[in-house]
Amino acid sequence: MHKGLWITVLIAFALFFGLFILSQIPVAITQDEVSIAVSDAIAETNAQVDEIEIEQLVTQKAVGKLEARQKKRLKFLVSAYFIIWLIFSLYALHLAKMQNQLCKRLEQLHSDLQQKR
């Protein structure tokens, strides 16, 4: 019982962690959106600029910002599920340990009684 529980607890952790990494969605900004936005912005100004260069710059910056936000969100998510895992595991292990000890003492008492007889 005790061993099975340990394995369950560990598998739960591995699975949760693996799924968590797998399920991360990459931050995606389509090229079209960026180019439209950049052309709009350029059309409003009179300055001479290199459209493609700015497009790359903007995309980089936007992706970076979005990724940072996602990281922050994931931090919340990870800590929440880590705590859930921790609480249940600790409680289950505590129960298993308690029951094991009780069983051992019970067996010992039974064997003591039989020896006396």
């Binding site: 369950t8 598998i11 739960a12 699975l15 949760f16 799924l19 968590f20 797998l22 399920s23």
Partner: peptide
């Protein structure tokens, strides 16, 4: 235990 694993899978993926 099985259902918990399924739940975690469903929640995340």
């Amino acid at each position: 235990a099985i259902l918990l694993f399924v739940a975690i899978y469903v929640v995340f993926s």
